[in-house]
Structures are given as C-alpha cells and as structure tokens.
C-alpha cells in the first residue's frame, strides 16, 4: 500500500479565531471527505483519519502558517489536493500550499508571533519585562495553582513597526501559549486587554525556518 505523507500549510484567520482546535479537527475531517482525499485511516475498532497538527492555536489567535500532516492510501498530485480542499472551506480557512514534508514536527523549537494591542508599551517597559522572571499562575492537573516562570520560553520579544514580534517556545516540552504571555503583559499594565495574536512562522533550534 502506498503511504505517502503530505503536509498541508493553511491559514486560520478572521471568524475562525473563535473556533477551538478540537472543532478545527472535525472541520478538517469532514472537508477531507468532501474533497475525496484518499486519507489513510487508523486501524482498530474505531477507525479515524490520521491527521497530525502542529501545536494548537489558542482561542482568539490567528495563524497564517498552520501545518497538518496526513497520509494517503493512493497517489494524488499535491496541486490537486490543494485545489480540491480550497473549495471545501468557507472564509477564514485557506490552504496555502500542499507539499511533501522534508522534516518532522519534532524539529520545531520556536513559533513566531505578531502581536498587536501593545502599541503604548514603551521600549524600557519591554526591556524590564525581559530582564527578570515572568511569573504566571498556572493550574496544575490536580486543580492546584502554581507559579511558574515563563521567561525561559521567550526567546525574543521585539517591536517591529506597529506590532510586537515574539519568538516563543513551541516544542512539546517547552511550549508557551502566546495568550499566557499577552495576559501577563496586560497584568503589568503594558496593554489594555484587547490584543491580537497572529502566528507567522516556525523555527528550529538553530533559527532556520521550518516548513
């Protein structure tokens, strides 16, 4: 049996930012069936299509670089997969391209985000933020609250034109939810709470772009 892996890069923007990752998975699955993509299913009692996503986006965040790996049971040209899938989405989901994956998601170390809503934050305040611990409260699995320092997960945070660019940990064991950073910045008075997050790229540990 052929088992070609295919990587799909897509954007999730606009009203799709109100849709959770779990809901996105279901939306993807029905779209794949409609588009008649020859998806490989898992074996077992309750077969479901094999779909592997990169780190989920938090609710209210957008992205122009989401990645999804699927496996096929028979060949289908990448352009055709792309063209077929594009027809199956409403505004907010867009297939950027479909290609053969050359590396695994495990190589990803960082995600790059464009963050708006902190225009009034001064350079000095940002420097101050990065100069020490960034303590945030986190709920553990057993419901207790614990304080952790997210500073090590912030590789960089810089002003670029009218927005901030943040490079944050995105490996499974060092993932930082961008929303956690934004909320912490708001608590420090750097913003007023109405912020926007857009994921714009993935990077390896050596800062080479991952796609």
């Amino acid at each position: 049996m052929v088992s070609e892996s295919v990587r799909i890069s897509f954007s999730k923007t606009g009203r799709l930012k109100y849709i959770s990752h779990l809901d996105l998975c279901r939306t993807m699955q029905t779209a794949m069936i409609r588009a008649k993509i020859p998806l490989r299913y898992t074996e077992g009692f309750n077969p479901h299509p094999k779909m592997i996503f990169t780190q989920p986006l938090p609710l209210f965040a957008e992205s122009e670089c989401e990645l999804l790996d699927i496996r096929l049971t028979e060949d289908m040209p990448h352009e055709e997969i792309c063209a077929r899938l594009r027809k199956e989405f409403a505004d907010g989901l867009y297939i950027n391209k479909v290609y053969e994956p050359l590396s695994k998601f495990g190589e990803i170390s960082y995600a790059l985000y464009k963050i708006t809503g902190f225009e009034s934050a001064r350079e000095r305040e940002l420097e101050e933020l990065l100069s020490g611990e960034i303590a945030v409260k986190k709920k553990t699995k057993d419901g207790k609250e614990k304080v952790i320092d997210i500073r090590p997960l912030v590789r960089s945070l810089e002003r670029r034109e009218d927005a901030l660019e943040a490079l944050l940990g995105a490996a499974p064991d060092s993932y930082l939810n961008p929303d956690t950073l934004c909320r912490s910045m708001c608590e420090r008075g750097l913003g007023k709470g109405a912020y926007g997050i857009l994921r714009i790229g993935w990077y390896r540990g050596d800062m080479s772009p991952f796609e």
């Binding site: 109100y18 959770s20 209210f60 409403a90 907010g92 109405a194």
Partner: peptide, 21 residues
C-alpha cells in the same frame, strides 16, 4: 465585536460563516 465574543462561552455559536450557509 471581538470584545463581546471574548466574554462568552463558545463564541462559535454567534459568528456564523459556516461552510454550506
């Protein structure tokens, strides 16, 4: 607005725009 939707559970109930509408 975004602000309204940030203050409710399951904002996807209120945004429409689904495939097939």
């Amino acid at each position: 607005t975004d602000n309204i939707l940030r203050n409710v559970m399951k904002p996807g109930r209120y945004t429409g725009g689904e495939f097939g509408q």
